[in-house]
Design a protein around this nucleic acid. Sequence first.
DNA 1: GTCTATATTCCGATAGAC
DNA 2: GTCTATCGGAATATAGAC
Lengths: 185, 185
Amino acid sequence: MNTRDAIIKVGDELIRDRGFNAFSFYDVSKALGIKNASVHYHFPTKTALAIAVVQQHSRLVDELMQKTAAKDPLVKLQAFLSIYTYTKAENKVCIVGSLATDLHSVDGSIQQELKLLVEKILHWVTGILEEGRNKKIFHFDTSARTRALLVITNMLAALQLTRLTGEKDFKLVKETIIKELKNKQ
Amino acid sequence: MNTRDAIIKVGDELIRDRGFNAFSFYDVSKALGIKNASVHYHFPTKTALAIAVVQQHSRLVDELMQKTAAKDPLVKLQAFLSIYTYTKAENKVCIVGSLATDLHSVDGSIQQELKLLVEKILHWVTGILEEGRNKKIFHFDTSARTRALLVITNMLAALQLTRLTGEKDFKLVKETIIKELKNKQ
DNA sequence: GTCTATATTCCGATAGAC
DNA sequence: GTCTATCGGAATATAGAC
């Protein structure tokens, strides 16, 4: 991995572990065994780094969408949920939650990039749920978009809340979501 | 209101608007027309202020529990949900979400205080849902605690996510939660 | 209880050598 | 592309006058 990508990786981990305002370029440089000034060579500002981090998440979502495009809706849903499972294993939170709570302290350009990511995810999950309902795999009686909002909020906050109640509750939330989408009402 | 309480109020608003690491004692003093050093007289450290903020939320939950103790479960649930509605009107997030995303950057004493608050809320909501099911007002087929986790995560993250998608989605999530608890499966 | 003044540390960012 | 060195500013916190 080149230095630029390594910086993005460390920056992402720090943002989702501690929050945007709780890490410094020194933290990043220390983790990579380089100097503060070298980080600034790749990312002139902290804002520029945060934007690159959000864009990296956006690309990962794109990849996951493409990889599962031909699969059935349950597999697609599990692919989406796996993002959170992986995140929970690190006891981190998701990039959306981390930056949303600090939203009014970050630059407008970061807010804008995050908004694009949220719209992409919401559109993706809405499509998965709609397709699943059409194929009688999922059952729910709200709009698909509303159901997507409920599923996403469950998962996003489960990462945060279960930092305080325990990891078992995260699995409980995830499994209940799947179970209830499968159940006929 | 005395200065101490005014500091707690401003500190709370700043934490839930921008995050713990994005505000300073100068921000607080500026908002109150006093000096940095005066804030330190009341709260020797930023950690001490954050603990007082969390304890204040805990007291408010106690008051809401007591005020609604004799009411029916639907009124109790609406009282609980009203916390988030009020928070959304300010476009802030809840104290649990704000500190949970920054959790690994704050002192252990804050983490501990937050854990107590989360346990109190989870226990309260679990009791409301259990009572509602016993009285045939709510209907769900998970444990009451699991249902409480789902309701709390929906609301907590709705505050965050709808900073990026719009306030209408917050109302949508809240109303769907109530509707689905009332509906027979 | 609030003030002025300041000590100390850290952070974001830049200049310029290699 | 990475380094040393440093600037300017901000933040937490404290000492001591009033």
